[in-house]
């Protein structure tokens, strides 16, 4: 697949970073490059943010041009509009709006265009973004080896030491599953921040693998939708068991793991096997994908000697006795 260039009309830097981070994650499956120094005429894809003046002007101008009278320079450019506002706000600007939630939707539209499925010109994609921007940009910051601090209520914090591929926190990752939905801020972490929190000598502070934070992002960022990477596959299979001692998890994640390490599975099959919701399973798949635990091309069913099902599992009764409820 050849590489395409895109140009962002009216996008702020944060959103641009989110898009770039997603494109980075899916790598060669959607080869797109964005370059701020690029001449717009050299880009084959234009993405307009209707929430900005610049984006609205661009889009209005594009729509106002009758097809026959379009500038020669428009020919061959794919155009996509996105906005965080309700559709009604921008209905005059978007013809036949196609509403898509989340950045994943932008990528889906782009993918269809590159595959020649969608209308090549003036395609209208209405894309909502917003609350997930900061978490999305965190992926990019980690990939770029930038250190950041995540701040949660109750004076809980996580310092991501991307350079050394670890993170420091004053709570065990087991507890992050409770705090993560309440994330208050993400900010750059300078050397002074590390020193002020005295990470290496603070008895309340422990180091954990950077996979702990990537796993959390996978678990929470896409809210039941497939992540850009996960959207590329229909069937999933785990390479091995996740190291759950340093990953925030739900007891049901262990059941899902048990299915996915032994057989390639579709989401629907997992729903039937485990009686868990699609959203719960998808979040788990996204988390596994975030730490590179899934086979790119699942194929092998494990030839083991397990019974298909057991009825009474005495270990469940033991776990209940130990205070663990599935």
């Amino acid at each position: 697949m050849s590489t395409h260039n895109y140009y962002l009309h009216g996008w702020n830097e944060n959103d641009a970073n989110v898009l770039a981070s997603f494109l980075y994650l899916i790598g060669d499956k959607l080869p797109l490059l964005g370059d701020r120094t690029l001449n717009p005429l050299d880009a084959s894809i234009w993405l307009a943010d209707l929430d900005s003046e610049e984006g609205r002007e661009f889009w209005q101008e594009a729509l106002d041009q009758p097809a026959a009278g379009r500038r020669a320079s428009d020919a061959g450019h794919f155009k996509i509009a996105l906005s965080r506002q309700p559709i009604a706000t921008n209905h005059l600007l978007i013809r036949n709006p196609l509403r898509i939630n989340g950045e994943t939707g932008v990528l889906t539209v782009l993918r269809k265009m590159l595959d020649g499925i969608a209308e090549p010109n003036l395609a209208s994609a209405f894309v909502t973004t917003g609350e997930r921007r900061s978490l999305g940009s965190l992926f990019m910051q980690i990939a770029h080896k930038e250190n950041v601090e995540l701040i949660f209520p109750e004076q809980v914090w996580v310092l991501v030491d991307s350079k050394n591929e670890q993170c420091w926190a004053n709570r065990h990752p087991r507890q992050w599953i409770r705090f993560f939905p309440q994330l208050m801020a993400i900010q750059p972490a300078t050397e002074a921040v590390f020193q002020s929190l005295a990470v290496s000598s603070n008895p309340d502070c422990q180091a954990y693998p950077i996979d702990s934070i990537k796993w959390c992002l996978g678990l929470f960022l896409w809210k039941g939708e497939p992540s850009p990477q996960a959207a590329q596959q229909q069937t999933y299979q785990l390479k091995n068991w996740p190291n759950f001692t340093s990953l925030p998890h739900h007891p049901k994640h262990l059941s899902l793991t048990n299915h996915l390490v032994r057989h390639p599975r579709k989401i629907e099959e997992l729903m039937e096997d485990t009686e868990l919701s699609r959203e719960f399973i998808q979040n788990f798949i996204n988390a596994c994908m975030a730490i590179d635990l899934l086979h790119a091309t699942p194929s092998r069913a494990l030839n083991d000697k397990r019974d298909k099902r057991i009825g009474y599992n005495p270990l469940r009764a033991l776990l209940s006795r130990l205070g663990v409820t599935a």
């Binding site: 068991w241 007891p251 262990l254 048990n258 397990r306 057991i310 469940r316 033991l318 776990l319």
Partner: peptide, 10 residues
Amino acid sequence: VEALAASLEY
């Protein structure tokens, strides 16, 4: 123990 319990279930 949790992992063992899960492993013993299909």
